[in-house]
């Protein structure tokens, strides 16, 4: 029982950064922009979050710094692809390359230094005067529910944010006027422009949202998942998040399933390594990447599904004619 509980807990922790980065990228792609720089924004979020937390001692400030780093980095991408209409694929790649380089330069000072871990939501609340203690007590009591108690009530705040974001994005995209406008920009930017929609402005907002989510995902890596700084610590998670968006066929709720599936694969392989089943650890470490390829193949085999959901203007630069 105890083991099952802690495995569920670690799966949720491993899935959260994937889910965060993917939900951000989903909104970006729904607006017709393909940002391949998720990995770069994520790793920048991780290093800036870690650095800010280590210098101030506050993991909350660290998280803010992570989000800020993601947004700033995404603006770089936005300026190039939206304002001066560069190729989105190449620009996204360069964002990733620059992010990996810049983060390892900034992070060199932090290698090996002790990290600051973000407290669980319950422990965070407990620090609020007056109402804090009783609410935290309630959380701790609920965490006693067998099997699912700890997964639902003994998590870091970012976990709850990630779930809330998925629900929020679903409501936004499919149940609000603004969401409809964003999807129209992604599906046909020329028509949207003709209707008087500010295509570039909306895409800027979407790209910044994606940057904030990727930055937060990076902050989760370096402040919750493994509270330390390791060079290239995103280890391809940004790319897996991109694959998850395709897997989810641009639907937020399906992302939830995808991210937790991948969380389970990456935790499962760690447990298999610990058990020492005689399977080479390198093969097990490759499993999340192989699973990504497999899942992409299975999804893309179904042409109708992908054709119907892919935003029609995805990856095409837009220069308004006046």
């Amino acid at each position: 029982m105890l083991i099952a509980e802690s495995i569920l807990l670690t799966i949720a922790t491993a899935a959260t950064p994937l889910l965060l980065a993917a939900i951000g990228e989903l909104v970006v792609e729904r607006s017709g922009v393909l940002n391949l720089g998720v990995e770069g924004m994520m790793v920048m979020g991780a290093v800036c979050g870690f650095g800010a937390a280590a210098m101030t001692g506050s993991p909350w400030i660290g998280m803010m710094a992570a989000i800020l780093a993601g947004v700033l980095f995404s603006l770089l991408f936005g300026f190039l692809t939206l304002t001066i209409a560069t190729n989105q694929v190449a620009t996204g790649l360069s964002l990733t390359l620059l992010g990996l380089g810049l983060s390892s330069m900034i992070g060199e000072a932090f290698v090996g230094s002790p990290g600051v871990k973000l407290p669980t939501l319950a422990n965070g609340i407990a620090e609020i005067p007056l109402v804090g203690q009783p609410v935290a007590g309630l959380f701790n009591w609920l965490a006693g529910i067998p099997l699912i108690g700890r997964v639902l009530f003994e998590q870091d705040p970012i976990f709850y944010i990630s779930i809330a974001l998925v629900i929020g994005v679903t409501c936004f995209l499919f149940h609000t006027r603004a969401g409809l406008v964003l999807r129209s920009v992604g599906d046909n930017h020329a028509s949207a422009h003709a209707l008087g929609t500010n295509v570039i402005g909306i895409r800027y907002l979407a790209v910044m949202f994606g940057g904030a989510c990727a930055g937060l995902a990076g902050g989760h890596l370096s402040l919750v998942y493994t509270p330390q700084w390791v060079e290239n610590m995103s280890a391809g998670r940004g790319w897996i998040a991109l694959a998850l968006v395709v897997f989810a066929s641009w639907r937020p709720l399906r992302l939830l399933a995808g991210a937790y599936l991948f969380g389970a694969v990456s935790i499962g392989q760690l447990h298999a390594q610990a058990l020492g089943l005689g399977i080479p650890s390198q093969l097990l470490s490759s499993l999340p990447y192989l699973a990504t390829v497999l899942v992409l193949v299975l999804i893309s085999r179904n042409r109708r599904l992908t054709m119907m959901n892919t935003p029609a203007s995805l990856g095409q630069p837009f220069v308004p004619d006046r």
């Binding site: 770089l76 190039l80 001066i84 209409a85 560069t86 190729n87 190449a90 620009t91 790649l93 360069s94 964002l95 390359l97 620059l98 992010g99 990996l100 380089g101 810049l102 390892s104 330069m105 060199e108």
Partner: peptide
């Protein structure tokens, strides 16, 4: 000087190339 600076140079270079290609 950290040899990581080289990777920053490389990343920046690609950015500027893409920007100038506009």
């Amino acid at each position: 000087l950290s040899d990581k600076v080289a990777r920053v140079f490389q990343g920046m270079l690609l950015f500027f190339v893409l920007g100038c290609d506009t």
